[in-house]
Amino acid sequence: MSNASANIYTLGIDIGSTTSKCVLLKDGKRIVAHELIKAGTGTYGPQRILDQLFEKTAVKREEVAYTVVTGYGRVSFQGADCDMSELSCHAKGIYSFDNSVRTIIDIGGQDAKVIQLNDKGQMTNFAMNDKCAAGTGRFLDVMANILILDISELEREYFLSQHPVRISSTCTVFAESEVISQLANGANRADVVAGICNSVASRVASFAKRVGVRETVFMSGGVAQNGGVRRALELELDVPIHYNEFSQMMGAYGAAVYAYEKAMK
């Protein structure tokens, strides 16, 4: 990077169906600040998250050279220089983070995506779920609600399971009644949770195989935080699934990297 490009701040905003995320980058590499709020498109989330971000950093809003917005709420968001699809932003963010990644599994609040990258980090293929919530974060929310568990408790329960039950992977509504039936028949809660995680993994693995799975496989999106689903996916795909605590921010991070590239043009 030339000296002329020093102190360029760019902002990436990812407005999902259930959460809003943003990342402030300096010179396209260093993360100055990031923020996540559990309110997605159509709520106060997108605006409040920016207020929160700039309260926590010395960088002023007017110092941001370029802003890219992504995610389900990108089209209706006012205040960005441009919007980009979350497919491209996740690909950009994750490859910038780890250039050995060739397959991305992103499971968000209402959709799931599998993205294949080439050696240059370019997207060469992808697949998304259809309109059904099966295989998405929403599916896990519904199931956790039935089990009177916080979503964060699903991972612990998964690893306690000895004999996972079988839960449908094709439809959230059918799966919900299956879970209730299993509980009514006295199934162990941990085994039901394992069945739920396996169901998500099975659904996502089916279109991961369609796209083609090449290592390194990285998981992003909110569901990546659930170690049960990660482990279930490893067993389904027979590959290690890489993840880090910043996984949920990868779309916003990629948007900020794109913003930097656009600012430098």
């Binding site: 699809s85 997207m123 060469t124 992808f126 998304m128």
Partner: peptide, 17 residues
């Protein structure tokens, strides 16, 4: 058609890469 929009935007990026 927002999901289709996301897919088509991704497709565009893929074809332009």
């Amino acid at each position: 058609y927002e999901q289709a929009r996301t897919m088509l935007e991704g497709f565009k990026d893929m074809l332009q890469a």
